[in-house]
Structure formats: structure tokens, C-alpha cells
Amino acid sequence: MNLTKEIGILLRKEMTIEWRQKHALGGILLYVISTVFVVYTAIKGVQPNVWNALFWIVILFASVNALVKSFVQENSSRQLYYYTIANPTAIILSKIIYNSGLLFLLTLLSYGAFILFAGNPVKDVGQFFLAMFLGSVGFSISFTFVAAISAKANNSSTLMAILSFPIVIPIILTLLKLSSNALRLMQDSSISKDIMTLVAIDVLMIATAFILFPFLWRD
């Protein structure tokens, strides 16, 4: 069985499982909306720079909560079954692709919720969408890999936060810069360099994840 076909099947499996456990997805959506609402009531009249920071903080926490279950939602005997039949590269790649899609959807919904409650200060929509997309991919790679690590440990939810937050800081900082340009909080002529930096971090992390995941998976 070739890799792309295997990834396709695994992706369909992920979606089926998500569909069967609708409460997980619904819980995350409710989490985002209530967080945005709390932010809105706490700071009335959100300034664009605060909007920008809060947006990415809400996305960060929502992403951690959404992805912490990546490797624990299925029981260990089923994990063993996947281990015997599937290629570890296909497994990590399908998880990353699926989680990227999920996070991008989540980001779009949060953006909608922010527009609804806190207004829309975004001036360059195309660039903001690019930032949201690259951010989802970067978060997905690092959080999926860390979720795989913390799933093997005893107290996984605490570990997830302490292991992943320092790792995503380069991504967050680049995203903040990119999106503050999209909000016209600052004028940056070297925006393509920022995008390249973000892509380079993503590539570095995905390469490390590919090499290391087979060792993690073996149990």
C-alpha cells in the first residue's frame, strides 16, 4: 500500500472518529466562543493591538485543548492495531494534516466570533488569512508531536502545556508580526521574509517530527 493511499484512509478514519464524538468538537467551539465573550466583557472597546494579541492567545489555548486528545482518544489496544498495520510516517502525517484542517477551521470560527463581539480591525484580509493558515499548520505540527510525547507520560494534560508553549513561541512571535502588518499596526517592507521564516520553522519542525516519530511510536 503506498503512502498517499494510506494517509487518505487514515484521514477518513480521523474524520469518522471526530464525527462519532461530536461532543469534543462542540466543546472546543463553545470554549472559543465563551473565551471571546469573556474577553469582550472584560475589555470593552478592544483596541486593534489588544485585539491582535488576544486573538492569537485565544487560538493558542483553543489549539492546545483541541489537540491534547490526538493520541489519547483511542484506547491502547486500538493503537497497537494501528501500530501493526500502518507506517508511522503515514500516521504522523495524517494526524498533522487532519489537525491543521481542524485548527484552520477553529481559527476561522474564532475570527468570526471576534468580528461579532469585538469588531474587525483587519485591513489586509488576504494577508491575515495567510497568517491564520500558516499559524494553523505550525501549531498543528508542534502540538501534534508534543501530544504524541505527552500521551506516553502519566500526567499528559499538564505536560502538554509545559512542553509545547516554549516550543511554539517562535511561531507565535512571527505570527504576531505578520498579523500586526495585516492590521496596519505597523508597516513592514520585509513581510515576505517573515513568511519565509514561518515556513522555515514549519519545515524544520516537520522534518524533526518525521525522523523522531518512529522512535516515539514504537512501544
Partner: peptide, 24 residues
Amino acid sequence: RISAVYSIFAFAAMIALLYVVPRM
């Protein structure tokens, strides 16, 4: 095994942290 995996991953992240971001 898992701490070896994490330390390699963290080192890759630290290169981004110490050499890419400060240049920006």
C-alpha cells in the same frame, strides 16, 4: 526513549528560538 526524542525536538526548536527570532 521519549526524553531522547524530546531533547532532539527541543534542540531544533531552540535553534529557531536563539538564531532566527533575534534576527527579526
